[in-house]
Design a protein around this nucleic acid. Structure first.
Lengths: 249, 249
DNA sequence: ATCAAAAAAGAACGACCGTGCTATTTTTGA
DNA sequence: TCAAAAATAGCACGGTCGTTCTTTTTTGAT
């Protein structure tokens, strides 16, 4: 706790913390990966200790409680989401283009398998279900992160309206609600039903929402279709013949 | 196991089973109620025993395993869903009217608080999240129920097309995907974000989806708005002034 | 009233949980 | 190189979990 009395204590402390913070970060990384499979409240100190090859108390010492470990996982997920989805979108011109960039990035991270990305699972979705009736720090951390991301999305919608691309007579919250529905349905059909057409359905649905709210649908169609093309191209086959969806069987 | 050798064994056995099956049903009812709060895999024999005022082994004896208790809960939920949402919709003329009846019933059961209905929680949503990466009997029972319900919804969509109300050039799965998104977003905003406008957003979103896919939007608007009116009327206040949504704060 | 079967209780088990506590090892800065 | 400090391991505790076994109570037809 107390600083050393000798000179240059500042950088020394930082260096001392370095090793500890390093393994702590590794623990959070492993925990986030495990939480994608077992759920956020299925996370136990024993499993992450096993996954890290260290003792249970060794892991525990870094956080002081299981709840703090869970909160750290949420914060780590938040930072990755911000870094990999939100920040890149800021380089795209504001308005519909940026909104599309954010939405497709969100869709991509939702539809990807857990081991194909460092943005494991969809913690904002699974966490919301697991902690919707469970007050506490984890729920608070979760809802704070979700709120920040939702605010960013709503801002992008509003900017699309002020740019004259989306109609101003619809409530941004309404557009956000419907867009979120696309994400959630994509998550459901991908993760639970294992439907192969999920990403196509999501892209088509998003296209419908945006075109419906566009001031000039003919004008924005090109922009929208261009942004959605990667989603539709990444499918197994556009005209898959006998591959019957789980929803269809 | 072996039947008694004496006469009239048939009704005797039935009568004997009656008491057991009766408490078994009571256990499943309590378990379903608990699963709405703690989640389906958060369900433990100890809790339902406590809630039932009986011993843990007494509860256990009725099912033989925790997994079987969970499956029984899923089946019970399925039967209630079928009885309270699906069957009543069959009395409505097929086509868009029936589709609307099913969708609004689904929305109602999703937005209701747990203690206001015998159709606790949205097991099809929370269960899908909890068991999406967990193979086993529970997942199978869950996905079977979901598949049956999804099939029924898709059938209603197809009938709306053959009745000439919805356009036939859109894939029923696409409409189902978007409609499901409305339900999921409603669940998210109601249960997790506690947004007061959730039901309004859902009704407006559903209206948009159906009007967009309608052969003659002007003709169907009256039917749709009439079906959605109860949803929009059940709100706290249409023009709530300063009540800021969680999404907006 | 009797008696066998069904239902429920009770006790115990091994396993895992989160959390303290005390050693021991490793890292760190002078 | 050395001592202080941080990181980790080891161990034990009380608790809950699902499950199995045995015993008791309850039930229902004779």
């Amino acid at each position: 706790m107390t600083k050393p009395l000798a000179s240059t204590p500042g950088p020394a402390e930082i260096a001392k913390l370095a090793k500890g913070a390093q393994t702590r970060a590794a623990i959070v990384d492993a925990a986030l990966s495990l939480a994608a499979q077992e759920g956020l409240d299925g996370l136990s100190l024993g499993m992450v200790a096993l996954a890290m090859g260290m003792s249970k108390s060794g892991v525990f010492a870094h956080f002081g409680s299981r709840e703090e470990l869970q909160c750290s996982v949420v914060r780590e997920y938040h930072e990755r989401f911000e870094r990999e989805i939100f920040v890149p979108a800021l380089q795209v011109p504001r308005g519909l283009a940026r909104l599309l960039h954010m939405a497709t990035g969100w869709m991509g991270s939702t539809a990807q398998p857990n081991d194909a990305s460092r943005l494991y699972g969809s913690l904002y979705i699974s966490g919301a279900v697991e902690f919707d009736d469970r007050p506490g720090d984890v729920r608070d951390a979760l809802s704070e992160s979700v709120r920040i991301w939702m605010d960013a999305m709503r801002r992008a919608i509003v900017q699309s309206q002020t740019e004259g691309q989306l109609r101003s007579d619809v409530a941004p919250d309404q557009v956000l609600f419907e867009l979120h529905g696309i994400i959630l349905s994509l998550h459901y059909e991908t993760r639970f039903l294992h439907g192969p057409q999920a990403l196509r359905h999501a892209a088509t649905g998003l296209r419908g929402i945006l075109l419906r709210h566009a001031v000039n649908p003919e004008r924005e169609a090109a922009l929208i279709d261009a942004a959605l093309a990667p989603c539709l191209a990444a499918l197994p086959d556009a005209a898959a013949p006998a591959s019957v969806s789980v929803l269809t069987s």
